[in-house]
Nucleic acid binder design. Structure first.
Lengths: 205, 205
DNA sequence: TAGATTGTTAATCGATTAACAATC
DNA sequence: TAGATTGTTAATCGATTAACAATC
């Protein structure tokens, strides 16, 4: 039975829907509609219904969606109804900010390990972690069964770090280095580069 | 004369093209083709040619594109052939990492001012900046004529900070707080939220 | 000249929106 | 019941790709 292929652009919107739902709960809302959610997010109601309907029927005619239930369903779809251990490579400004960030654990992710190649940093304490030598990436990550990693190294070494991570079994990489990575097609990469986002806006200034 | 409207998705790819070009120069390349650039970026050659042709004719049949010339043209299109001053609001882990980041200036941007509301931080030194009181946002930013800002505050105050920035004349906001902002339609917002990118990948794990 | 690669058009593909029957 | 809102289909819209004449 061939599994239905969901467009990547639809998958990409699910985390945005999911992020909004706990905020609505905080406001003591219990039920929402595609229209209300759409207005908050600047997305059309039709699109939200269409996206969600790819995965099942989560709403009730006349009433809308139970916020709690919808959030739980999206968590399951995205596999964040569990917690994924992550490795961070590069303990510079960004790497340590990420290591200290408290916001991941509610969202199905957690930093479990950090690496650097600088002898002055290796074996020191950073947040609640002892910095490991990047030379041990393959062994440590493989042993821990970690599949998700963030690269926060200088651009020059990002590609080789990526290859090391892949050989250790990593399947999802979030890259903070401002460079395009080449990885096998069964590995996913996402990029965070503030300058890219900013240049996208300066066009309109 | 109505100016041609360029799709936002095309504008969004220009910074990606631009980022790759100086790297090619470093490798002593002087000329490239849509095919070569496309292979590096995982984008089709036809799309790159189509995108660029929206803005002019930058290549030569049979030869390709002069890397130097193309980069300069894209910089002009994106208005990063100058340097934009930016304000950073929130001097936590992310805010200070951004304030210290050296990579903006080559790309047409520069942090010029940082703000926090914590009395323990106001007037202290952070990187090369003296932290200003968020209460002075409107006055300081307006006086400096700053149009670009980054929000790196807790989510709870991000919306009100955004409104303050807008009233000070800011037209482009990069938001690190994991929350959707509501702004007037002449103001652009881009979001950076690592958890969103990560959840987009855990779907496939 | 022969080979390569652009810029552009037309064809294809895919995503978004509008509309509405079903139904809570 | 009347009103509201879903899930889904068909229509529209927009983006990507293929193909090729032009030309360096």
């Amino acid at each position: 039975m061939p599994e239905k292929i969901i467009p990547d652009i639809v998958v990409g919107r699910l985390p945005i829907y999911l992020r909004a739902l706990p905020r609505m709960l905080e406001e003591k809302r219990r039920v929402t509609s595609s229209q209300e959610l759409g207005e908050r997010l600047g997305i059309s109601a039709a699109q939200i219904r269409k996206d969600l309907s790819q995965f099942g029927e989560f709403g009730k005619q006349g009433t809308g969606y139970s916020i709690d239930y919808l959030a739980e369903q999206i968590r399951q779809i995205l596999h964040v109804d569990r917690v994924w251990d992550m490795a961070v490579v590069g303990v510079g400004d960004i790497g340590s900010a990420v290591a200290r960030y408290q916001g991941f654990s509610h969202r199905g992710l957690r930093v479990a390990m950090i690496f650097d190649s600088d002898p002055a940093k290796i074996a020191t304490q950073e947040s609640s972690f002892t910095v490991k030598d990047t030379k041990t990436i393959k062994e440590s990550i493989h042993e821990a069964g970690i599949q998700v990693a963030m690269i926060a190294t200088p651009s020059q070494v990002a590609q080789e770090v990526a290859e090391e991570l892949v050989s250790a079994g990593v399947k999802a990489i979030l890259n903070y280095a401002p460079i395009n990575l080449t990885v096998p097609e069964n590995v996913r990469v996402q990029y965070i580069d503030p300058a890219i986002h900013l240049q996208r806006m300066t066009y309109y200034l």
